[in-house]
């Protein structure tokens, strides 16, 4: 029986994904109210432990999103993040956490529509496994 309301924590980079999410909002694109956004300077700031701690504190899903690789405001922050998030995602099954509850992606400031898709799709996925 899928849960109707889920709580998703989003760690968003200030320069791309946060602006992209803002754009989706101002364009009045329909998206679920499941997402709680934590705005960070860069995905390079996302310590994998932030994700694990969010799960421990009861989050149903965790979404990490930043600038596309190559477009980082600080040149290289998301390159580091990409390696960390990939290791983390693959570790989740061993930790007893369904990897479907975690997603990392890249959304630029101009991709409002893509942002709405990401949130819709991820919310749907989390509802299925919770």
């Amino acid at each position: 029986m899928p849960k109707t309301e889920v709580k998703i924590i989003g760690f968003l980079c200030n320069w791309c994904s946060y602006a992209g999410a803002d754009m989706a909002g101002t364009a009045r694109m329909k998206q679920p109210a499941s997402l709680r956004v934590v705005r960070l300077p860069c995905t390079g700031r996302v310590n994998p432990l932030l994700v694990l701690k969010a799960f421990r504190e009861g989050a149903d899903g965790v979404l990490v999103s930043g600038c596309h690789p190559g477009d980082c405001h600080y040149n290289e922050g998301n390159y580091y993040a990409r390696r960390r998030m990939e290791v983390l995602e693959r570790m989740l099954p061993a930790l007893g956490i369904d990897p479907a509850r975690f997603h990392y992606t890249w959304v630029s400031a101009s991709e409002g529509a893509k942002w709405a898709d990401v949130v819709n799709e991820f919310t749907r996925r989390v509802k299925q496994v919770i």
Binding site: P69, E76, Y80, R82, E86, V87
Partner: peptide, 14 residues
């Protein structure tokens, strides 16, 4: 140490 570096050309094909 691999998590203290990155490789633009190889990473991301995962």
């Amino acid at each position: 140490t691999p998590l203290l570096t990155y490789d633009v050309n190889r990473d991301g094909g995962w």
